[in-house]
Simulated assay, not measured.
Amino acid sequence: MIGYWQRDVMNNGDRLDNKIKPVADAQSPLLQEVHAYWRAKCGDRAMPARADLDPIDIPALLPNLILIDVIPPSGRLRVRLVGTWIVNQFGRDYTGRYLDEIDFGEAQDEIVREYSAAAAAARPVCSDHRYRNLGGQIYDIERLILPLSEDGERVSMLLIVLDFTERSASPPRQF
C-alpha cells in the first residue's frame, strides 16, 4: 500500500472518519458537475446505463473517475478503470482487482461497505475522508459514488469521482 486512509487523530487534534453526507452537501465542483451530468443522463429512470455516458462530455473529470463492475450474483466489486490522477495519488493502478482484495489499511471494511451500500441501495452516496500518503502528505477527499444500470433496476456498475484537497504535511514525530 502506498498510503493509507487516515482514521486516527490528526496533527491539529481533529478527527475525520469516513463521513456519509447528502449529495446536496458536496463542496467539490467536480462532484457537483458529475452529479448534474449523471442526473441529466437518468432521464425518467432511477439511474443511467454505462452506455449513456460519453467521455467526450466530461473530459476534465476523467482523471478523477473510477469505474467499478458489480459482478452478479454475488455483488462483488471489481475495478474496471482508474483515472490517472487517482493512480498518481495512490501510487498504483488497481484496474482488474477486486475491491475487497485491495489494501486500504484500517479503512478497508468501511470502504468496501460504502461502495457495496451504493450498489445495494441503487442510490448515490457522498462522503468525506482523510488520506495520508507514505510521504506524509494529508489530503481531504470528497467522494461521490453513482450507480449505473443496464436494465434500469439492478446496479451493474458504479461511477465514482474523487476530489483531493491537499491539507498539510505531517509534522515529524517527536518522541
Rank of each mutant, 00 (worst) to 15 (best):
R113H: 13
E106L: 13
V82R: 01
L134W: 05
D103W: 11
F104V: 15
Y131C: 05
I111R: 09
Y131I: 08
G96F: 08
R123S: 15
G96E: 06
Q89N: 08
N133W: 05
I86K: 02
Q89L: 14
I66D: 01
R97L: 12
I68A: 00
D100T: 07
A121V: 12
L134K: 13
V82N: 03
P72S: 05
Y115A: 04
P72W: 07
P73V: 14
L81W: 00
S74H: 10
G83C: 06
E110Q: 14
Y131F: 11
S74C: 07
Q89V: 06
P124S: 05
F104K: 12
G91P: 00
R123I: 02
Y115N: 08
P124M: 02
R80P: 00
E101L: 06
R130C: 07
R92G: 10
Y94F: 09
V125M: 07
G105N: 15
V112P: 06
A121H: 14
A122F: 12
I111S: 02
A107Y: 04
P124K: 02
P73R: 07
V112F: 07
D109F: 10
G96R: 04
N88P: 03
V125P: 00
Y94N: 11
Y115M: 01
Y94A: 07
V79L: 10
Q89A: 15
S127W: 00
V70K: 00
Y115L: 09
L134R: 10
G105I: 12
Y115I: 01
N88R: 15
V112R: 03
N133I: 12
H129V: 09
G91L: 04
S127Q: 09
T95R: 10
A120C: 06
F90Q: 04
V70F: 06
G75F: 05
V125K: 00
A118G: 12
I71S: 05
R130N: 01
A120S: 12
E110N: 15
I102E: 09
P73F: 08
T84L: 13
I86R: 02
T84I: 02
R78W: 14
L65C: 02
S74T: 14
P73C: 11
R130G: 01
L65W: 00
V70L: 08
I68C: 00
L99Q: 07
V82G: 00
L81E: 04
R123W: 09
S116P: 00
G91T: 02
G96D: 05
D100S: 13
V70N: 02
S116L: 04
P72I: 06
V82T: 08
Y131L: 03
A120P: 06
R113F: 15
D100R: 09
G105C: 11
P72R: 02
R92Y: 05
D93Y: 13
D128L: 15
D128R: 11
Q108Y: 05
A107E: 09
